[in-house]
Structures are given as C-alpha cells and as structure tokens.
C-alpha cells in the first residue's frame, strides 16, 4: 500500500481555482518531484498536505489512515490537525528558522515541546532533554554543520540555514518530508550544498515530495515526476518517461526553457 494517497484535491482562492482534481500516490522510501511554472499550484499542493491550507474537496491518506476528507467534518478539527501535521515535515523556500534560537535550539525546540506532553516527562526530564539534544546534534552533523550548532541564523549562510531547516524538519521523524523550492532563495553556489544533503536523504530512502525548479536534480533524484500546469497534473511518470518521452506539448515547452537556458 502507498504511504501517501492524495485523491481529487481541489482548492480555490475566491474565484480562482488553484488546484483542480489532483490525485497521486507515493510509495514508502520514494521521492516524487513536482515541477511546473510559477502559479501552477505546486506550492499550494504542498501547503494542503501540511494543512497550512484546507482543500475544498478531496481526501488525503497516510499509511491508510484518512487524515483529511473534505466530506467528513470530524477530520477537520483544529486540534486533531495539529497531530496529523506531524506525519509531514515541510522545508520552506525562505527557511523560516527561529532567529532567537541557535541552530541546535532550532532543531530541538519542537521536539522538546512535544515531549512535555508525555505523561512521564516530569520524571525523566533530564534524560529526555539529553536524548533530544543528542539526536539534534547527530542530525546537524549529518547536514555537515557540526561546527555551526551554537550559531544563530543570522550568522549562517543561506545554504547553512536551509540545512538547519532540513534538520529541524527531520527531528520530528515525519513519514513524508516535503520541500517547497528549497533552493530558490539561494545563489547557485549555495544551491549545491543543499541539493547534496537532499540527495543523501533520498539515498537513505527518505520519503520525500519535492517542489523544485532544479530540473537536473528532479531527474536525478526522483522516482516519479509530476508536471503541473494551471492547477492540474498534466503529466506524471518516471523521470525517463517525463524528460525523454514527453507526451504533452505543454510539458515539452516548459522543459525546453531549461535545456536551452
């Protein structure tokens, strides 16, 4: 069974239909890349998965559990949504690190707050804190940031910030890690270091949904590529199918801009 099933997701802002009947599924340990021009609905789709936007219609299932069903009001409850969000991690284009916390604290904060909800938190406070810190240090190390743990976000480069943000998302061990154009705010030099850690994550079979404009990367890392246009999934398939045996004229037109440029 697929780890993620998205069925018939629709979303409008006012009279503008941003997502029109989006359906796809994702297998455990696989990577799906979503490409398409700006305004095609890619980001909105990710935001729907993370419950930052509420779809007008459709169903979202993770591991067979229905997290969202527009027809079932019991899945729309605000406090239940908070827990459901934890199935997903989201890495933002603009990092959104917490400026008053160090890199290490950024990675630890959410986990510590969640730990406080455990019944045995008071008794094991120090132990839990140690565990969370050890895990955060390990994650930052994996991101190549061992010597940056006590730095504040404004002391880090964009690429370093984004790697902290990836560690922060990974700290909660989400089932599916989503990336919203993670390198679009970076200059080309820094893009590489972020793509490198994402590639490593893919090699470790992290389940990921990646919205990106890095075509070479999408092709290289993804098991499946989705091309979105005007709120629809126009074409989807393996990277070979989509990039080499492109079916739709619109997709070919979009891709040509990258090969020519």
């Amino acid at each position: 069974m697929s780890i993620l099933q998205v069925e018939h997701i629709c979303k409008s802002f006012g009279n503008t239909e941003v997502l029109k009947d989006i359906s796809f599924s994702l297998e455990q340990g696989q990577v799906i890349s979503i490409i398409g021009s700006s305004g095609s609905g890619k980001t909105t789709l990710l935001r729907c998965l993370n419950f930052l936007e509420r779809p007008d219609g459709g169903v979202i299932r993770v591991k067979g559990e229905t997290l969202f069903d527009a027809k079932d009001p019991s899945t729309l409850n605000e406090s239940a949504i908070r827990k459901k969000r934890l199935h997903f991690g989201l890495v933002f284009q603009s990092f959104n690190l917490f400026p008053q916390y160090t890199a290490l604290e950024n990675v630890m904060l959410a986990k510590e707050l969640l730990a406080k909800e455990q019944p045995d938190y008071k008794a094991r406070k120090n132990e839990i804190h140690q565990e969370i810190q050890a895990q955060a240090e390990l994650l930052l190390k994996q991101m190549g940031l061992s010597d940056r743990m006590t730095n504040y976000p404004h002391q880090l480069s964009g690429g370093q910030c984004q790697r902290v943000a990836i560690a922060r998302a990974l700290a909660l061990q989400p089932d599916i890690l989503c990336f919203d154009e993670p390198t679009s705010a970076l200059d080309p030099e820094l893009t590489g270091e972020v793509l490198k850690v994402m590639k490593e994550l893919a090699e470790q079979n992290t389940t990921m949904v990646i919205v990106t404009h890095e075509m070479a990367f999408a092709r290289d890392v993804a098991n499946q590529v989705i091309f979105m246009d005007d709120g629809r999934i126009l074409e989807q398939g393996t990277p070979e199918e989509l990039f080499e045996n492109t079916r739709e004229e619109r997709t070919r037109q979009f891709l040509s801009r990258f090969t020519e440029g």
Binding site: F51, L52, R82, G89, L90, F98, L113, L172
Partner: peptide, 9 residues
C-alpha cells in the same frame, strides 16, 4: 507556519 508544521500549538 514553521511552528504549525512542527506541531506547535
């Protein structure tokens, strides 16, 4: 948004 996706209230 960063707080929300990290499961904060």
């Amino acid at each position: 948004e960063a707080g929300l996706v990290l499961g904060m209230t």
